[in-house]
């Protein structure tokens, strides 16, 4: 029978990447200048601003993530900021606020939180919203 276990895609940038293996559990601050694949557990902050973070199907992250691109197959609890795109796949489970130039969530994924799209390089601030006037229906 074919192995249908979902697997995270290889980091797309072609750059070097590091993998936090399934049996690994780490707390702390992580910063890197290469792509990162998380198959284990991580708690803290992740800053790979110019690279891609991929949370594998078994990965569990309780963390704020800052990256160029974030792909989630596993579980993330925390704020995610991506300069380019956040991609939550069908098996993904995310609770937190997302901020990115683009966000895609596949049908079947779990997501609770808010999404703010960065437009022209910056998120629109809440203060920029005009007050809503009440109207008769």
């Amino acid at each position: 029978m074919a192995d249908v276990t979902p697997r995270p895609p290889a980091p797309s940038s072609g750059q070097a990447s590091s993998t936090l293996g399934r049996s690994m559990s780490i707390k702390g601050e992580l910063s890197a200048k290469e792509d990162l694949v998380i198959e284990g557990q991580f708690e803290g902050t992740i800053d790979v601003a110019e690279n891609t973070v991929t949370v594998g199907p078994q990965g569990q992250v309780k963390s704020e993530i800052r990256a160029r691109q974030v792909i989630v197959h596993g579980s993330v609890n925390g704020k995610i900021s991506a300069r380019e795109k956040i991609d939550i796949r069908r098996t993904g489970n995310v609770t937190g606020d997302l901020q990115a130039a683009g966000v895609a969530i596949e049908d079947g994924a779990y997501f609770k939180g808010s999404i703010e799209i960065l437009r022209e390089g910056r998120a629109e601030s809440a203060q920029a919203r005009p007050a809503v006037s009440q109207r008769a229906s």
Binding site: F111, I115, R129
Partner: peptide, 29 residues
């Protein structure tokens, strides 16, 4: 309202998400 704050209380539908993200200032789910 140029960028309304929108809450979607339904099951995730990527088509819905794409439409609402294009219109909202912040989308809550």
């Amino acid at each position: 309202i140029p960028r309304p704050y929108v809450l979607d209380c339904g099951p995730i539908r990527s088509a819905t998400l794409n439409v609402l993200l294009g219109r909202s200032g912040r989308l809550y789910r």
